[in-house]
């Protein structure tokens, strides 16, 4: 069985983001590039499924990003992925959800898979729409937000979280799966894993290799960024030391009254 995991490379979500007031650009200096958190969970799910399946199951990570970020993928290889495929091309710059999903789908058709595991949401773009668009372009079932998954006789059985509870769902392979954070904490790369990752391949792909019928990048994108700005500033408020419970409660109650919230 071949499991492919899509991984986006994003600015460290734990770093405080701010806009340089002079250049009006996001300050990237000192901000490391990491694997999108949801995608680490997707990779963890793939590694667990591989361990359970045994045999000749392989896990391939796929990413589409600027060339300079390529080596960040070693982290996924160190966690235990067998190999990586990296799609990078100047012609992809400016891609939106539609163009990203289309380009990715054509590359993924070339790579081939029995199970495609995608993260639920990126930390930077936060559209959460790439998985659905990918599934349509690939013509495979789309089962999202899984907290458990099981494969038997070519059938995928999933327990998935919903906004109000959970569902059990089944569908045929090949399929696209996205994972919830409850699937399991991503493992740490072991020293052996880190050493081994240096020898694993990151196969490069360009647009010429995948042959597209439709435009991608800013030409193919259906959305165009017009402006961006920091949110309205939110100043530091008051601090009140409460002598006891009643005094603390009174301070809050007075504040709520002042703001007409009670």
């Amino acid at each position: 069985m071949k499991i492919v995991v899509t991984v986006k490379l994003v600015p460290d979500p734990n770093a405080e983001k701010r806009i340089d007031s002079a250049t009006k650009r996001l300050v990237r200096s000192g901000v490391e590039t990491v694997l999108n958190p949801y995608d680490e969970y997707a990779l963890e799910a793939a590694l667990q499924l591989k361990e359970r399946a045994g045999g000749d199951t392989s896990v391939v990570v796929f990413s589409m990003a600027p060339e300079a970020l390529k080596e960040t993928l070693r982290k996924a290889l160190a966690m235990g992925a067998d190999e990586a495929v990296f799609l990078s091309d100047a012609g992809l710059e400016g891609s939106d959800v539609w163009a990203t999903a289309y380009a990715m789908s054509q590359a993924l058709k070339k790579i081939g898979f029995d199970l495609l595991i995608v993260g639920g949401l990126t930390d930077d773009g936060s559209t959460g729409a790439v998985p659905g668009a990918l599934a349509e372009h690939l013509g495979v079932p789309c089962i999202t937000n899984a907290r458990k998954a099981e494969i038997a006789d070519g059938t995928l059985r999933v327990e998935r979280e919903t906004d109000s509870g959970y569902q059990t769902v089944r569908g045929p392979l090949p399929a696209l799966l996205t994972t919830a954070l409850t699937f399991g904490e991503p493992r740490y790369a072991s020293l052996k894993g880190i050493m081994g990752a240096k020898k694993k391949t990151i196969a490069p792909l360009t647009l010429a290799d995948i042959g597209l019928d439709l435009a991608v990048g800013s030409d193919g994108a259906k959305m165009q960024l017009e402006a961006f700005a920091p949110p309205p500033a939110r100043g530091k408020g008051r601090t009140v030391e409460a002598a006891d419970g009643a005094a603390g409660a009174q301070a809050i109650f007075d504040f709520l009254k002042e703001k007409k919230l009670v």
């Binding site: 289309y102 659905g132 599934a135």
Partner: peptide, 8 residues
């Protein structure tokens, strides 16, 4: 999920 699928 619906939005992504319709977009495609």
């Amino acid at each position: 999920d619906l939005a992504g699928r319709l977009a495609a």
